[in-house]
């Protein structure tokens, strides 16, 4: 398998406080990889370093062999990483399709165009992306009136606009109902498979993680304490102690089919 993302010895400290310490891992092509851990373990800090929102104190990030450490988010994006956020950040003054068109305009380097009407550009392409996530019927609605689950799907289609090689998803199902969660992750898993994109996501819903992740990494106090298959991570005693707990709060392996 070819390696898409290669993270080597990534560390970050904020004024002496170590948030992430010597984290190394790889993401393979078309792999759906989960990053879990307690709040404050450094998951978001890790993500922000991968995407360029934060500069690491030490370590390097390679995308398809090219070093992207410390690049600004907009440059990282142009290198082929798409991102969704824990709290959606779509443009609330635009319609659904315009949100996607905006990403397409940026991808095609048309941001300084002052001649054409923006809403007439790349309509078909935008529509295809919306169809991919099942949002085509809501294309002309104002983004501000969308239900939360729909916003999450829209965000996913925006993240796919520039044909990324890797998706970074920070708690993609946060704030969604159980049914929607599974549906969104199923959709993500299908996209990963069909388009051969890799995806790295953080998540607190273990039902989602255990049902879809190809591999799971566990972060605690800034350090990677486990990295392996779902079964391996679930049975890891340290992971149970710091994060999973007694197992009352997610489905047991035996009854994943009903809540």
């Amino acid at each position: 398998m070819s390696i898409v993302l290669d993270v080597q010895g990534l560390s970050k400290s904020f004024g002496g406080v170590v948030a992430v310490s010597d984290v190394s891992f790889t993401v393979d092509k078309a792999e759906l990889l989960a990053l879990i851990g307690p709040n404050g373990a450094g998951k978001t800090t890790c993500f922000n370093m991968l995407m360029g929102q934060l500069a690491p104190t030490a370590g390097n990030v390679f995308l398809n062999g090219e070093k992207i450490t410390g690049m600004a988010p907009r440059k990282v994006w142009r290198k082929g990483i798409g991102r969704t956020f824990q709290i959606t950040g779509t443009y609330s003054s635009m319609t659904v399709i315009e949100n996607v068109q905006m990403a397409l305009l940026s991808h095609h380097n048309r941001l300084f165009d002052v001649r054409h009407y923006a809403h007439k550009q790349y309509q078909d392409e935008a529509m295809q992306l919306l169809e991919l996530v099942g949002m085509q019927e809501q294309a002309e609605r104002a983004c501000a009136v969308l239900a939360y689950g729909d916003l999450k799907r829209l965000e996913l289609s925006i993240a796919l606009a520039h044909n990324p090689k890797l998706l970074l998803m920070d708690e993609p199902t946060a704030g969604m109902a159980p049914k929607e969660r599974i549906a969104l992750m199923q959709l993500t898993a299908d996209i990963v498979k069909d388009r051969q994109i890799s995806a790295l996501f953080t998540e607190h819903d273990m039902d989602v993680v255990f049902a879809h992740a190809h591999r799971v990494m566990v972060l605690n106090r800034g350090e990677l304490i486990a990295n392996g298959s779902v079964e391996m991570v679930r049975s890891n005693a340290e992971v149970q102690e710091v994060y999973l707990g007694g197992g009352n709060l997610y489905n047991n392996a035996a009854d994943t089919h009903h809540a």
């Binding site: 779509t90 443009y91 068109q101 305009l105 940026s106 048309r110 300084f112 165009d113 002052v114 054409h116």
Partner: peptide
């Protein structure tokens, strides 16, 4: 135009 949209995008998020 795309420029105006990019300006609004920068304001919205």
């Amino acid at each position: 135009t795309p420029f105006g949209y990019a300006l609004r995008a920068s304001r919205d998020s």
